[in-house]
Design a protein around this nucleic acid. Structure first.
Lengths: 160, 160
DNA sequence: ATGAAATTTCTGTGAATACTGAAATTACAG
DNA sequence: CTGTAATTTCAGTATTCACAGAAATTTCAT
């Protein structure tokens, strides 16, 4: 499925394998199971470690590095979202701010265009600030909250 | 910024241009502004229409097709999320179900592995069901809700 | 220190994707 | 109809990305 998500195939395969494996795996086990080059596995493991969802562990009496994946899906989700915010949203917001600053100095900028940019900035600010708060909720609260669904609206007293 | 988001550069450019433009644009205007081939613009417009965020409009007295983009950022977000759910999440859930069914018929499957798959399925089920509800909230309610942030936890009576 | 095992870095190749320009098709005015 | 403008499809090219295998580096036991 990895490719459909826009993720490198081998990276997705390594991650999937580590995720479902009951015990940490070493590089050679990944090479054998996935039938890819050793160097490729090395690169993928580095990538996954860069995302903070795979870490190296040592097995007593074994010289080789072993790797294990973060196992809690909710924690996993939080880590990935936070990392994507850092890599994708934050630079976008910075860019947006520069565009808006630029448009302020450029009187011929269409008012409409400037408003669209401000809309976008506001959207990212609102959603980012919200995420930074809920990411700290304990998983149990998050699940209970989600299962309420629409009921939240009534409890909070807005909307039907 | 498009490329960083894993989106085709020209598609992102066309979309950005239509988004900030006060009026619908025709293909030639896009070609001139972005300095890309006519055929490329045609493909990108088709792609964006496939996502449901750009639509064709006609300007009186002008034979050429014009295009305009969905302007409300919250609506835009909803459309994109819904489409991504359909394209990415739904097939993943289906695949997961097949894997779990398969593992039921295969007694030698590690219990741990099966549990990880079920965890994943549950995660997607919970988050998808939640999204299908909140996507129908009016934007005003959604914004008010988000701005509450952590306060929601207290109102609902769980967590600190 | 020395050598073997493990790992990473580097380079070239193949595959996938994006794009252009030409040809084909469609839409429409006269 | 016919011809022109507009648009799309197609085929070839270029660019980007993923990967394998070799070479280089690191790690560690002796």
């Amino acid at each position: 499925m990895g490719t459909r998500w826009g993720i490198n195939r081998t990276v997705a395969q390594v991650h999937a394998l580590l995720f479902i494996s009951p015990k940490p795996l070493n590089a050679d086990e990944l090479v054998e199971t996935l039938a890819v080059a050793r160097s490729n596995v090395s690169t993928c493991l580095k990538e996954l470690q860069g995302w903070g969802i795979v870490k190296m562990v040592h097995i007593l009496g074994d010289k080789r590095d072993h790797f294990e994946c973060m196992k809690d899906v909710w924690d996993l989700f939080r880590v990935v979202l936070t990392e994507r915010k850092r890599r994708e949203i934050d630079p976008t917001m910075q860019m947006l701010n520069e565009c808006i600053a630029e448009s302020d100095k450029t009187p011929e900028t269409d008012t409409y265009t400037r408003e669209r940019l401000c809309d976008l900035r506001e959207f990212f600010e609102t959603t980012s600030a919200w995420y930074m708060q809920i990411r700290q909720w304990p998983t149990s609260a998050l699940i209970k909250f989600m299962q309420l669904g629409d009921k939240v609206l009534k409890v909070l007293g807005f909307g039907a």
